[in-house]
């Protein structure tokens, strides 16, 4: 026990290894030095000041930290920050702003597809990954695609409706 503790103590914060990363974060080239063991979620929340991705479990079980990595929906708690160098990361903050909402965000508001809102950034980004890959999903497809994003307030019916609405908006020719 004592020996294990001593070994661990040698990894005091100052002595921990850090890695320089350079990634495209919400459309901007971002450089940072991050501890090797930090997840992408820790980097986003503690260092990049982006708290839209939530920590619901830190174990890849709830989906509240879902972000897009090179356009693919990933759990940010299951990706090391160091792995993201040279890649594109989009968080909810990069999707739209209250003044200029993405069709998905707009649809979630129209259909009231949210309650407490804690899971919503993850739900929206998981839905974006789906619609980018499959522009015309049916309801069952949406439900399956979002099955990795828990919502304890129980908004699943309206979330699926909102995603289908957003898909229709995105298919409109002027877009």
């Amino acid at each position: 026990m004592a020996r294990r503790a001593a070994t661990r103590s040698s990894k005091s914060p100052a002595a921990r290894h850090v890695t320089q990363i350079e990634l495209e974060l919400n459309g901007r080239v971002t450089r940072a030095s991050v501890p090797d063991h930090w997840t992408l979620l820790e980097f986003l929340r503690k260092s990049a000041g982006l708290t839209g991705a939530k920590e619901g479990c830190n174990a890849g079980e709830c989906g509240a930290c879902t972000v897009l990595l090179d356009g693919v929906a990933v759990y940010a708690c299951c990706v090391l920050a160091a792995e993201t160098s040279g890649r594109r990361v989009m968080t909810i903050e990069g999707l739209g702003t209250p003044e200029r909402l993405d069709p998905l965000q707009e649809a979630f508001l129209v259909d009231d597809a949210l309650q407490c809102g804690f899971c919503i950034p993850g739900q929206i980004l998981a839905a974006k990954a789906l619609l980018d890959a499959e522009p015309s999903p049916d309801r069952e497809c949406v439900r399956r695609a979002l099955s990795g994003n828990l919502c304890r307030c129980g908004c699943y019916v309206k979330i699926a409706t909102a995603v289908l609405r957003a898909a229709a908006i995105r298919r409109e020719p002027e877009r």
Partner: peptide, 22 residues
Amino acid sequence: SMRRVDGPDKVTGAARYTHDVQ
């Protein structure tokens, strides 16, 4: 059926929860 007044904050990640306080 008025839209939620805090909806825009929630769908853009601007809403600050206790977990987010720094």
